[in-house]
């Protein structure tokens, strides 16, 4: 059964909650490691999840992350409510950033987030509606 869901969990992220930023992705990393995925795969998923989580914390009001694991795929879906992205093509360019000085002080906002998520994903989809929010779908093949 190729699409049998081995694991599913939903997490929530609060926008601007910098003190908890990263807790969802560290949990995701621990879960994937526990399931027994190859460390290279776990690292890719954790990096993609962390960048995506930071984007929600930095730019959105709130967000939901759904982690779905099947024998062949890790699927991380993020949906946030917030300002959305005006020009996705521009946001996908390395180095393009709308970060504030506060975000840069955190070590983020270099304009590497979305390209970095894409680089670590086997499938990557992004949709956004200005003033409503953004949805990311990240798939990492288990092998």
């Amino acid at each position: 059964m190729e699409d049998e869901v081995l694991f599913f969990q939903e997490f929530s992220i609060m926008g601007k909650d910098f003190s908890n930023a990263g807790t969802v992705s560290t949990q995701i990393k621990a879960i994937l490691k526990e399931i027994g995925f190859d460390p290279v795969i776990v690292r890719r998923a954790a990096i993609a999840a962390y960048e995506a989580e930071m984007n929600v914390v930095m730019y959105a009001d709130r967000g939901v992350v759904r982690l779905r694991v099947t024998p062949h795929k890790i699927n991380i879906e993020l949906e946030d409510e917030g300002q959305g992205i005006e020009d996705i093509e521009l946001a996908m360019q390395e180095g393009y950033s709308t970060a504030t000085p506060e975000m840069r002080e955190m070590g983020f906002g270099a304009g590497m987030g979305l390209p970095n998520i894409k680089r670590n994903s086997d499938e990557f989809e992004i949709t956004s509606e200005r003033g409503k929010g953004t949805r990311l779908n990240i798939v990492i093949n288990a092998r």
């Binding site: 990263g22 992705s25 962390y50 960048e51 955190m106 070590g107 270099a110 304009g111 590497m112 970095n116």
Partner: peptide, 27 residues
């Protein structure tokens, strides 16, 4: 910049940084 670490660092490397907040450790 932690995004640079996430984008370019190789596993097992040492990180030399001036960023002292919790994000450095999470990264």
């Amino acid at each position: 910049l932690m995004s640079d670490v996430l984008a370019f660092a190789t596993p097992g490397t040492i990180l030399v940084t001036g960023l002292t907040n919790v994000q450095s450790v999470i990264t």
